[in-house]
Design a protein around this nucleic acid. Structure first.
Length: 526
DNA sequence: TTAGGGTTAG
């Protein structure tokens, strides 16, 4: 066999280190695990040594980019997997919702094999159960905890509380907390704070927060996040200012809070301040700041953040990548958007939707379509948002037949129920192309009542294409639909003026006055 | 071994 790579050699030398975490530092990729494993098989060292097998399993399951099917293969090929190996695999399963069902299955398997779950088993399996939000199962697990005599272990109890909290069963979490006050620690308190805040009871969360015998930065950050979620951003800021020691998550929590509450400038100011102070923002903070740039169309600030990401090292994170390409697309730098998109090792529906929207927004109708086919070829199913971007892309590029075809595809092939936005896009598509009659027909045939957005798109199209009579009809319907909306009168008046129907213009002016319609700032004439 | 983070339309 070939020689081991430098990284794999290093990994081999650390494989038998007494501490698993030391071993794990050597295995940054599963390929190292595989190389070492192959080496051990060839040299005959992998055969009998259960410690080596266990360590390989742990490294495959828990390294930076784990490969669970490889870990499972090691597990299956071990004649009598030990209890520790079960716990290791359970730990790996508990890390993602997609693997949670396997975690539950392995727990059952463990019981059937005659093992007794211990204080390590329960935190993992309870966490999987919480991710599944399966309260029925969770209550059974709680019963097992009692049966196996582990209800005095603070790790186990905290995870039972966490499970109840994830299952939106906060009453049970609080009850357990009250029963376990003698062993409760700062984690138990923080779970309650988070649980209350997630269930919308921010004041109870604050009450627990104030009662805590001791706090750490996680507790403060949880409370800051909670205030951000409910829009109490000044309370969040107050805590941020008051906390004794901030870590990068504290900054991140407030930055995210600002972005969530549409305070985009504040988010950008804060991340600037953070970096100026020499703090390194975490990925969540950068994601929120990048999203703020997207909303503000702040390309310069966005470029700066991209440079920062490259400096820190882009690890292929799908959420960060999506935020970046979305920002570049919205700011009009489609080249950079495509570059980030192509650099991303993994893409999800958000990534595809953002890239499609970016192309559509910048008028690349044909490219939108080819990206859409590529997306389907690679096995990602489009959703309702995908079609909003697709239709708007077609509309802006005058691709009428393609747009109508996509609309049919959406309802027939993908069984997606159209929303008003989809209807609006079709009206826009037909209207821009001058197919006014077809657009009117389309609107009249819709299973929704009269809607101002749809009729507005129609009237706009009539004006552009000089369809005075139809435009007047539509604008009149609009005025009656929204009698307090000054823009509707403006539209009607414009259409009449373009046909030199001055008597009509005068009538609209009088109507506006009689009905005491207030002018919306920025609306054009009258 | 447990607690705190984030992306897409309009």
């Amino acid at each position: 066999m070939g020689r081991l790579s430098v990284a794999a050699s290093k990994a081999l030398s650390l494989l038998h280190h007494p501490s698993l975490s030391q071993s794990l530092t050597a295995f940054t990729a599963v390929s190292h695990v595989k190389q070492v494993h192959a080496h051990l098989i060839v040299t005959g060292d992998a055969q009998q040594n259960i410690f080596t097998t266990t360590r390989l399993l742990a490294c495959a399951a828990l390294c930076g980019s784990p490969d669970l099917s490889y870990a499972e293969a090691i597990f299956r090929h071990t004649p009598a997997p030990t209890f520790f190996m079960h716990n290791t695999l359970l730990r790996a399963y508990s890390r993602s919702p997609a693997d949670s069902p396997d975690g539950i299955a392995l727990y059952v398997h463990l019981l059937r094999a005659g093992f007794f779950p211990d204080k390590f088993t329960f935190p993992f399996v309870l966490h999987s159960c919480g991710l599944l939000e399966n309260l029925f199962l969770g209550r059974q697990l709680h019963g097992h905890v009692v049966k196996f005599g582990l209800c005095h272990d603070v790790f186990v109890v905290n995870n039972v509380m966490g499970m109840y909290s994830s299952c939106a069963e906060l009453g049970s979490a609080r009850q357990l907390f009250d029963e376990s006050l003698d062993i409760a620690n700062v984690v138990s308190w923080t779970i309650l704070v988070t649980g209350c805040s997630n269930s919308g009871d921010i004041d109870t969360a604050r009450a627990y927060f104030d009662q805590m015998p001791s706090k750490n930065s996680v507790s403060w950050n949880a409370m800051i996040t909670g205030y951000g979620r409910v829009g109490r951003i000044s309370d969040a800021r107050e805590l941020f200012n008051a906390m004794p020691e901030r870590d990068s998550a504290s900054w991140g929590a407030l930055i995210s809070g600002y972005t969530e509450n549409k305070l985009f400038m504040e988010a950008l100011v804060l991340i600037r301040e953070m970096v100026n102070r020499g703090e390194v923002p975490n990925e969540a903070a950068i994601v929120s700041a990048v999203s703020a740039c997207a909303h503000l169309r702040a390309l310069e600030e966005g470029d700066w953040l991209y440079e920062l990401v490259k400096e820190i090292g882009f690890d292929g994170n799908v959420i960060l990548g999506t935020a970046l390409l979305d920002m570049f697309g919205k700011c009009g730098n489609i080249r950079k958007a495509l570059m980030v998109f192509n650099l991303m090792p993994a893409k999800n529906i958000y990534s595809w939707n953002s890239m499609i929207a970016g192309l559509a927004f910048n008028g690349y109708g044909r490219e939108v379509l080819s990206l859409f086919w590529k997306m389907q070829l690679l096995g990602t199913t489009p959703n309702s948002i995908t079609f909003i971007s697709l239709l708007s892309g077609c509309s802006h590029s005058g691709l009428v037949d393609e747009g109508l075809h996509l609309f049919n595809m959406m309802t027939q092939k993908y069984r997606i129920k159209p929303q008003l936005e989809h209807y609006g896009s079709v009206v826009d598509l037909l209207g821009r192309a001058g197919l006014i009659e077809e657009a009117v027909h389309f609107v009249e045939g819709l299973p929704v009542g009269p809607h101002s957005g749809l009729w507005g798109a129609l009237a706009g199209a009539c004006r552009i294409h000089g369809e005075v009579e139809l435009g007047r009809e539509v604008a009149e319907r609009l005025v009656e639909l929204e009698p307090q909306h000054s823009g509707r009168y403006a539209l009607l008046s414009n259409i009449l003026a373009s046909a030199r129907r001055w008597d009509g213009v005068e009538m609209v002016r009088k109507l506006l006055k009689d009905r005491k319609v207030l002018k919306t700032p920025g609306s054009s004439i009258l």
